[in-house]
Design a protein around this nucleic acid. Structure first.
Lengths: 201, 201, 201, 201
DNA sequence: CATGAATGAGCCTTCATTCAT
DNA sequence: AATGAATGAAGGCTCATTCAT
């Protein structure tokens, strides 16, 4: 009887190690050799669970994106409207080691996505999902009267997403400029503008 | 006397080719051999003008960033305040082949910058410069009464920059979603919000 | 389980091939490609056992030096004093294919050692060891009354070593001049001088 | 009218620079590029005077050997017999910067000579010449009664040469062990032995 | 005379991948 | 299931050399 192993568990374990390496030393230097060295597994072992380096790579970024989004959505539990939106935004900010790593990985794969159709599709899916979550919050906000009813939500949602993305990128690229406090303030401002849009008229 | 060549001109010629390749096939596949193949030059020729690949690479991204920023600043000529800001923003949008390429290259190097101190510094410099240009526009706008005098400009400028960055990234990653028209609209909205900030109170 | 191979055995096998090549075509032309070609192994195979060319090189010269010295010391078994010394000297003479190769390799690395601290240290160690062996023989000879008691041994040992080295080099550089017989005669003379030193006074 | 240049003078100037480099950084790293850099000449200039790197190389070692031998022979002026021999030996010792450089270069080319017929011939010629000079001294010594008449000179000369070579090599390879004083002592001993050979009987 | 632009051969090394065990 | 032995493609780089000017 062969040893029983939990395939998925092992895959995830490897993926976690790879994710940490991607965030630390980058895609280029994250070779299978190096993964094997740092994880203590053998090279063959790794390719036993991922037939390909590409497969390992794509699964890792997918795992990162899913974890990121599900964490944000989980934090929404019990909240709705602008309060939910604010929490959603805050959950995306690169203020913890984990989320900073996510951003670092994401940004690397955005780079790859610029020239790879497959990666672009993956990243687009992720943006779509985030956009959808934001729109939901805005719809709730509209229903709750927090946001002007006649306003088109898609541009609002995209504006929110873009500022979030830009903030995330800048927080990584210019580490000194964006403390946790300032990042949170920025999100609050974004939300406040949506609220003020109501009063503005 | 040896053949006289304009070193800088040659360097720029090579850089242009490399930039096009970076935007088309990506950093990873942009090898010196491939550059030689596509440009028709010999391998040695390229290393005659750039002592190694890193130097070629870093010069290319720098060239792209400089061209991008100087184009935006040139377009500002004669304009000031919010009008200038809008033009600045529009000049950054990935709506032409050239600017799309710039974004593709920039995004790839942002990815590298996440794990490379040197590249991070380069990109940070670029963001600093853009931020400064935006702040100048806002100062003019303030003096002209287009923008509320008491408002702090730095957060505004950063908000603008972040939306611009997020928009640029998304326009590349989700090509179908952002037509030229919508991108321009988005910039107009950004500027409009600054103007409305004045009336809001 | 992977195929089980004796690492050290494989390493030695490669080293033997490299040593032969060093003696035949020289360090400069002993490239990894050429080693692969002549040995029938692949390039990767070689770097599987030696992480780079330097490691392969330094291990080869060390292996040569060790083999050379241990052969000479083994031949001393059962002998002592001047008889041992003579045998020691004879074992160093480039009169067989193997020893000639050793000299050729040694001389090449002496050349490198003139400008490389690391190689110099390696060669110095080897000379130290040889000197020590010679001194031991001389001490035995002194105790046995073969050599004058009051004579300082270090200069004697060095004189012996120098003649041996000079003879070895010349035998390689001027192949026609030094037949086996003449080389052996030269060693006998060296030893004879030590013996005569006793009677001289 | 073309500029008049002294071909030979320029060649020698280049050779001197190359010799210094050979002794400092070694043959392998003495590339034409590097020679050009260190000498201030252009690459083409150098290859104008030496059609080949090989030609430059071989001329340099020849120049070194000639200078070395002629210096030793010059010092003999007015001397003869064992006194001349001692001076000859002392002139060969690597006790000055210049002579140390000569030894370093010579040892490198001995290494090359082990696998190159052409270089071997060059070095053999040099040894032949040295041997001849030594024999001449010994003949004078014999005639002067300093050395036993019945003794065969060739083995004596070779013994002297070998010790000289071995001493030179060791002085380079184990710099700490052989002070100028000890080197001179070693030469005196060699000569003394020839003298004592007379009395021994 | 002299320069340096341009070439391409060849080197070391890293890496993903295959496969026998 | 798991290992690591073995392969060969590909990359960056250095260098001697040729040649137009």
């Amino acid at each position: 009887m062969p040893k029983i192993v939990d395939h998925d568990e092992r895959r995830e374990k490897i993926i976690e190690i790879v994710a940490e390496m991607l965030a630390t030393i980058g895609v280029e230097r994250t070779t299978i050799r190096e993964i094997a060295r740092q994880s203590g597994y053998s090279r063959g072992f790794i390719e036993h669970y991922f037939k390909n380096k590409d497969e390992l790579t794509i699964n890792t970024i997918r795992w990162v994106n899913e974890r990121s989004l599900s964490r944000a959505n989980e934090a929404l539990c019990g909240l709705s409207g602008l309060a939910a939106l604010q929490t959603f935004g805050e959950q995306m900010l690169p203020v913890t080691h984990e989320i900073r790593n996510e951003w670092k990985i994401r940004m690397q794969f955005w780079g790859i996505a610029t020239v790879s159709h497959e990666h672009r599709r993956e990243q687009a899916r992720r943006s779509d999902a985030a956009e959808k979550s934001i729109i939901e919050c805005l719809e709730q906000a509209q229903r709750a009267g927090e946001v002007e009813r006649t306003i088109e939500l898609l541009p609002m949602a995209q504006s929110f997403l873009h500022r979030l993305y830009g903030l995330g990128c800048n927080a990584i690229l210019r580490p000194g400029h964006f403390t946790r406090h300032r990042q949170r303030l920025a999100v609050q401002e974004m939300v406040a503008e949506f609220a003020s849009a109501r009063c503005a008229h």
